[in-house]
Design a protein around this nucleic acid. Sequence first.
DNA 1: TATAGAACAGACAGGTCTGTCTATTTGTCA
DNA 2: TGACAAATAGACAGACCTGTCTGTTCTATA
Lengths: 197, 197
Amino acid sequence: MKSRRDDLVETALKLFYLHGFNATGIDRILAESGVAKMTLYKHFRSKDELILAALQLRDERFRNWLMTEMEKASADPKERLLAMFDALETWFQGKAFKDLRFSGCAFINAASEFGDHDHPAHRIASEHKRRIVDYLEKTCREAGLSQPERVAEHLALLKEGAIATAHVRNMPEAALLAQDMARAVVDAARQGASEAT
Amino acid sequence: MKSRRDDLVETALKLFYLHGFNATGIDRILAESGVAKMTLYKHFRSKDELILAALQLRDERFRNWLMTEMEKASADPKERLLAMFDALETWFQGKAFKDLRFSGCAFINAASEFGDHDHPAHRIASEHKRRIVDYLEKTCREAGLSQPERVAEHLALLKEGAIATAHVRNMPEAALLAQDMARAVVDAARQGASEAT
DNA sequence: TATAGAACAGACAGGTCTGTCTATTTGTCA
DNA sequence: TGACAAATAGACAGACCTGTCTGTTCTATA
């Protein structure tokens, strides 16, 4: 049951992601989605609102994809943490989201274009990243790791580094470099959990 | 001996960095630099050329700043590698480049706005990152670490992760999270160097 | 089939953008 | 002082952008 609104947000997400927010005009979104201009302004007050809707869709879809990939990789939470980086590599290779080549992280991109941390788009980006840390922290706890908040932050930072490196330098293997370090982080926290700290 | 051209590139760099490339019009650059429009088009064919000149200035200036910070921190190359993350933290706190608040990495930002890897601005970004890896690798060799190419890539990835995290989540302490992991990476490579591999 | 809401095409206003042009002023050096 | 190069202000064209408006056509439901 795809509504006109859904077509719009879907097309907007794709074009914003591939070409940037400021560089993408609404006329192009309308042309590619086959929606009339008045329909857009019936559903959204402005282009800015459409940007926010597209980012919210991306947040939901990306986290869902990542969690699914991690959970189907293994039943062991420690393995799941490491499987995140395998998932990242498939993403970097353009195999994760159909007909959407890898073009960096939509939220890092949003933060780049909307540099002010108070801008609504930047806030959505910030919240997206926090939600991922929350999920990693939960998985760290399930794995019985020591200092789960800290380990989750470490793993999240490795993920960001892999994304930025893969995008800027066109280097999908960055995921495996990050995975190397992630393994060390997780192993250290596993030993730490059985020791007195 | 500051030329009109220098004023222009300086102002362009500042505004592009703070507000983005597409969002910054040349009229604003002209107004803030006090330069006439014809002077701009005497020195540059187009706005795109000005963007490239600004990124080149940033490349030179940033790498110079980073290397200086690392080298003044210690004479020991291993300590210098770790000092990179202290330097990053001062940058994230806005204390590195005068009257220029931290607004992410200019090259990650450029890659975001110019997503196509063949775009000249994206290439400059890619080369900037590679030059930093080269410098890290050289320092790894000076420190006598095993697998210097690999360790340099690890450290560079940690740096990117710290930058992205600090910017998107407004979290300057990301530098210290990265430093934790960097210490582990460097220590492991030091042990590795004295062992048979 | 009748009706009402939704989406349609397309013109339009008003603003902003890059890049060009002209004519004038400034600054430097002999 | 005189001459030449550089920089200036400001108007302008043409393209593009967001957002509004009008009048028509589609579609679902009663």
